[in-house]
Design a protein around this nucleic acid. Sequence first.
DNA 1: GCCGTTTTCGGCCCGACTGTTTTCAGTCG
Length: 589
Amino acid sequence: MTQGPSYVENDEIARRLMDVGLLLQIQGANPFRVRAYENAARTVETHATPMHALVEAGADLTDLPAVGKDMARHIHEMVTTGHLSVLDELSKEIPRTLIDMIRLPGVGPKRAKKLWQSLGVQTIEQLEAVAQAGAVQELEGFGLKTEQRILQGIANLKQRQGRFKLSDADALIGPLLAHLRAHPGVQRVEVAGSYRRRVETVGDIDLLAIADDAESVMDHFTTFPRVKRVEKSGGTRGTVILSSDLQVDLRIVPAESYGAALQYFTGSKAHNVKFRTKAVARGLRVSEYGVFEVDPDQDPETADPRSGRRVAGDTEASVYAAVGLPWIPAELREDRGEIAAAERGTLPSLVTVGAMRGDLQMHSTWSDGKHSIEEMLVGCAARGYEYFALTDHSKSLAMTGGLDEVALREQWREIDDVTARHPEIRLLRSMEIDILRDGSLDLADEMIAQLDIAVVSIHSLFDLPSGTQTARIVKALEHAGVHVLAHPTGRLINRREPIAFDLDAVLQCAKAHNVAVELNAHPNRLDLKDTQVVLAREMGVRVVISTDAHRVEELDLMRYGVEQARRAWLEPAHVLNTLPLPALLATLG
DNA sequence: GCCGTTTTCGGCCCGACTGTTTTCAGTCG
């Protein structure tokens, strides 16, 4: 096994371009130049193919959206030398650590620069010290409230690093929505923002409501029992912090603006910018109040923002239609080509939970699951599945009670017994087989050959060098009996980093050997993640969406996997377990 | 700095709120 060259990955390239933009912002550069760096960073971050692969293939980087001559040069430099000279130069003038300060509430580029130039503050720690000493409120443009806000922000930062997993947000928001809906004045309330786009983690929650008595509803909102602190509370906008430290914003809008507000607050920002630009070209102005015809005689600087003839706004569909587009599913609104696809009429017909005909990874009491084979079977049948795969762990995963060959044969006897009583659903004989250090599998070949579907995955040696890890996975996929690579990166959101490996090479191998890759639906994993699933789709590798359930109720986690699949533009045809049983069996061979 | 069924130059999304102000900059979403 050889160690491949260590490339600068897309996320690192994106981060550095973003840092250049932020440093330019602090410097006071042309804001559109700043945005150019942000846009290029986003392109790189969400681009499925690694930049180093494009450079190696001799591709013209300026074909990428938001990448012109300069950005192409920057990307090329990072790929070939590992450095970005424009960032190095800027860092000499402005400390890079000021970027951390911008992320504090109440601190933007201007104030960060002021704090640095007036007080010599370069880091969050230094800022905390001078703020505690009362030096910040003395600065021009600052005051006592700003100083307190900064200190509060630093305290919050220390308390909670990272964002909320989508499933945690779901659990926290459900009771609040019920509370709001119980108020007689609330006609409608929905969640917008990244939550509605089903981004894997959310920073805060945006609620949108139509209400008769806005003041009373806002009152009801801020007195929700789990509110820890009320940040603001106005006539149409309020912000609270829940006891879980989740920030929730509520906006109350008139019914005729509801669709426009929902569209606007769902975002993403990049999607909205592109959408509004399209509207401008049609002589329209889009805001959260609606779509308006622009009066060509009026100076846009001085015109009332709500002036002009309203042409749409009550529903989202009307807002898109006014700009000549069909309604776009929220999961696609990331400015990853969805507006162009909408224009061409080629938006994908996205996969749904209802299209799933089976779940291809779950555990029973035979290893580390909490429910018996029969209980899991009944749970799957209750969810309307045609089939499911029982994938208990293999022997090397001792802590889970993994099965050796003898135990697996015993399990098969129980399976025969259970399935004889339950003709309503097909149980596929399977196992989640560990990939060992050298890429060999933790189950005898003659047993693998008797499985209906063989799932392999890594549970150990997460920190091998990338080249070694890649070779290990590739060897496992080359095994003739293997059908699915489960949770390919091994990441645990907010807990464990993904393993280092060459995804491109692994997908090529999967394609060559007709192996599917899993999109693990468990909200702790969501592995592969959306942008990686895009790469699999583009390379023609089939995807499996599985829950990895360890108890019956976890079978309902399927929706999280499907939602991420939708973010990756997957249609049913891309997903192996949307196939009817006979077609699935034929594919598995 | 990017980009083009109005444009290769002159644009680049939109509005609200807060705090620090005496008419508005800065931040936020």
